Simulated scan of single mutants.
Amino acid sequence: MNTQQQRPHPAPTALTEPYWAACRAGRLAIQRCADCRRYVHFPEPACPFCRSRSLGFEPVSGRGRVVTYTVVHRPFVPGFADLAPYPVAWVELAEQPGLRAFGGIRDCAPDDLAIGMPVAVTFTELPGFGPIPDFRPR
């Protein structure tokens, strides 16, 4: 049996569905406040900066730098054992200081990963769900 099919799937909500729709279209889209113009991630019902409820999703470049990372050697979540060891990272996106997205790092040996490494979004197909954002070195 393919353990990848056993991986947990995201559970889109009315708040997060535009994010997942953009992923299905091959784009990374992040919430942005129409009033203060700050990006907000993870999705929120109100802007944490100005409390406006005028938030929409806008495409971003998907380019950024690794802020911190870890290499998972012993996965505790079903369906990930076939990937170990695998790196995951917080990436600060180029659009705004402090705007961070989380994802796996693809096409990079764990020993080659470094804080400050420039990366770009890529999409990994999660069977039974669709594409999810990850990152790869650029």
Rank of each mutant, 00 (worst) to 15 (best):
Y19Q: 13
D107P: 00
R63V: 08
T13G: 03
G56I: 00
E95N: 09
Q4N: 04
W20M: 14
W90T: 14
F80Y: 14
A81G: 02
M117P: 00
D112W: 00
P45T: 08
H9I: 06
H73P: 01
C23D: 06
R53F: 10
R27L: 09
T16S: 13
R51S: 12
L99A: 10
A22D: 00
L93Q: 02
M1E: 08
G128R: 08
T13N: 13
R53L: 04
R38C: 05
A114S: 09
P48F: 02
C108Q: 06
P133G: 00
L15F: 07
G79C: 04
H9N: 03
L55V: 04
E17N: 05
V88T: 14
A34N: 13
G98P: 12
A114T: 09
C50V: 10
R27T: 05
P8Y: 10
R32E: 04
V71G: 12
P85R: 11
C108M: 11
G62E: 04
A94P: 02
I30W: 07
I132F: 09
P59C: 03
F76A: 15
R24D: 12
V66Y: 04
A25R: 15
D111P: 02
D112Y: 00
L55W: 03
S54C: 13
T3S: 05
P8E: 10
R100L: 15
P110Y: 08
C23R: 08
V77H: 06
P85H: 12
T122N: 00
T124P: 00
Q6D: 15
Y69E: 09
V67A: 03
Y86M: 07
P137A: 11
E17M: 10
Y69I: 03
T13F: 05
P127F: 01
V60L: 12
R63Y: 05
F57T: 03
D134F: 03
T13E: 10
Y86D: 11
E44F: 00
P118H: 02
Q6R: 07
D134S: 15
E17Q: 14
F49I: 02
A25H: 10
G116T: 06
R37C: 10
Y39D: 13
G79R: 09
Y19S: 13
L28R: 04
G64N: 01
L113Q: 03
R65Q: 12
H41G: 11
P10I: 07
L126Y: 11
A94F: 00
M117L: 12
A89Y: 13
F76V: 15
T68V: 12
L93I: 01
I105H: 06
T3V: 03
A46L: 05
R32P: 09
E125A: 06
C47G: 05
T68Y: 03
L113D: 05
P75H: 14
E125R: 01
E95Q: 11
V67C: 00
P133H: 14
R74H: 14
W90I: 14
G64L: 04
I30K: 05
P87A: 15
F42C: 01
R51V: 08
V40W: 13
Q31M: 01
Y86E: 11
A109E: 07
V60R: 06
G79P: 01
A21T: 06
D134E: 15
T70Q: 11
G130D: 08
V66W: 02
I30D: 05
V71Q: 14
A84Y: 02
L93P: 11
I115T: 15
Q4T: 07
R65G: 02
W90F: 15
L113F: 03
I105C: 09
T16R: 08
L93C: 05
V67Y: 07
C23L: 15
L15C: 10
